[in-house]
Amino acid sequence: MTQQSTSEHDPLLVAERWMSGGRDVAIATVIETWGSAPRPVGSHLVIDEKGNFEGSVSGGCVEGSVIAEAMDVITTGEPRLLEFGVADETAWQVGLSCGGRIKVYVERLG
């Protein structure tokens, strides 16, 4: 847990760096969890307009879907509230295999 690695991968510092570099940025935040959620409330995933990302909201289960929504949010500027639940056969791609549920708030920076 060195200072350097913290600032290098810290999503909020990354978001600020990207913004200063002229990139469009969205910030996704876990705002509620139920059951065994992989990442705690307050965790961030930051995404730029090209789909580059840093951080995590679920440890990999729903990131793909959040990134797609985030790119829409960057275009429209309207925040979105996403909810992901237990994975079933059909929703395997965007479900949480651990059986938890999470709510993710996605907003544009600026």
């Binding site: 909020l12 978001a15 910030i27 920076l109």
Partner: peptide
């Protein structure tokens, strides 16, 4: 998120 808020928050966190 307001860019000013992000900057302010990062300053507090780093301090």
């Amino acid at each position: 998120m307001d860019p000013y808020c992000l900057k302010k928050l990062n300053i507090e966190r780093q301090a």
